Amino acid sequence: MKRNQRTAPVPSGAAEDSEAWLATPESRAALEPRRKPYWHAVGTGRHLGYYKGARSASWHARLFIGSGRYEEILLGKADDSSGADGHSVLDFSQAVARSHDWWSGKGRGVSAGEADPLGNGRRPKKRVQTDRLDEVALAWARERPDLDLSLVGLFMRIKQAHFMHERRLAAISEAVGVDSGELHVLLALRRVGAPYAMRPTDLFRALLVTSGAVSKRIDRLERAALVARIDDNEDLRSAQIVLTERGVELADAAIAHVAAGLATLREAIGMSDAEFSEADAYLRRILAEMG
């Protein structure tokens, strides 16, 4: 690298084109905190970045996209003050691997047989994408590096995933002739098994909506002959909501569409059963602590 192209100072003892000045927490200690990352050029248009704030440090990657502009992504926290876990806290080699995942997804990674300047030597299985949520994380990391806001990004992604799942359900609902709220009622009744009956109070508790909302959905489904009200012999003040034969058929068709969509998504993601189980376990721990 030419001297006038350097994007960060090289501490004493490090080679001019070496990554040694970023490789360890001890070598990075020589760098002064500042508002922009220290960038190390890995290849043409590709940089690994180390941001050092007053109280925290993080890894970044960027890609030159033309006209003097770069696309940037936050990779994770740096292991300056806590041990790397390979997920939210990364050491240098883990940051390198994650940056190559992202660059390869952008079509600028290491191709088969090409030497990797940082010794990575592999292509990722799946693309790591940047989006507007990364921009939020980058903004807060720079504006308030003293605060740990890493979980905010996680919750925003959970919310976005839920929104996208509900949007898929809305499309399935439209295809089978009901709205998404009504479909949730049909699926709740179908999954309890024959005779596919629940009390209205059990329905609104299961669906986490108000009793009034459930009543309106039941009324519409009853008019469509998808459910029926049957008196409860054990409680004359209440009635059971039961799927009709047509309601069972519609619920089965809808859940088959859901399963097909999830299978396609799962294949596209490329995660193993063990990885899905691990992700589920982490979410369970988060929900247990929040509850």
Rank of each mutant, 00 (worst) to 15 (best):
A137L: 07
R190G: 12
A112L: 05
E16R: 12
A197I: 12
A194R: 11
S215C: 00
I73K: 10
L22Y: 00
K77M: 05
A57M: 05
G76M: 04
A288E: 11
W39P: 01
E275P: 03
Q5H: 12
V258Q: 04
W39I: 00
G119V: 15
V89K: 00
P200T: 07
G119H: 02
L31V: 14
H40F: 07
R191I: 01
S272M: 10
V110D: 15
D131M: 10
A30W: 12
L203K: 03
Q129M: 12
G43Q: 04
G119S: 10
I172R: 06
L48K: 08
W103N: 04
D146N: 15
Q94K: 14
M271F: 15
N233K: 08
G153R: 01
V248K: 11
S173R: 00
D80F: 08
L48F: 04
V42I: 11
R284W: 03
A54M: 14
L183A: 13
K125C: 11
D79S: 09
L22W: 07
D202K: 14
H100Q: 13
A253W: 05
E71S: 06
V258N: 00
H257Y: 12
G113L: 11
L169M: 10
R55G: 15
Y196E: 13
R266Q: 12
R46P: 00
H100N: 13
R285Q: 13
G261R: 03
E222S: 09
L265A: 10
D273W: 04
D202V: 02
G177A: 10
I255H: 01
R157L: 07
L169S: 03
W102S: 02
A256M: 00
A188S: 09
A112M: 03
A171N: 07
R6S: 03
L226P: 06
Y70Q: 08
T44Q: 01
Y38M: 02
I172G: 03
F92Y: 13
P117T: 15
D79T: 07
T264G: 15
A175Q: 09
R167K: 12
K77A: 00
S173A: 14
I158Q: 14
A30H: 14
A213C: 06
G53A: 05
M164K: 02
L250N: 01
L147K: 06
K125F: 13
S88L: 01
A112E: 10
S211T: 11
E72Y: 03
D202C: 08
V258K: 02
I230W: 11
T44M: 06
L31W: 12
K159V: 09
E174R: 14
S82L: 10
A256R: 11
F276Q: 13
E16P: 01
R127L: 11
A206K: 00
L22C: 02
A279S: 11
E19W: 05
R6E: 00
L265Q: 03
P117G: 07
R284A: 13
D101C: 13
A194K: 08
L287M: 07
A41M: 04
V136H: 05
G247T: 04
R223E: 04
H60W: 03
R205T: 08
L243E: 01
L186A: 06
M198I: 00
E234F: 06
N4C: 07
L265G: 04
V248I: 12
Y196C: 15
E71F: 02
S215V: 03
W21V: 14
S67A: 15
H100A: 11
D148K: 05
A57W: 00
R284L: 07
Q5D: 08
E182W: 13
S272H: 01
G247C: 07
S81M: 10
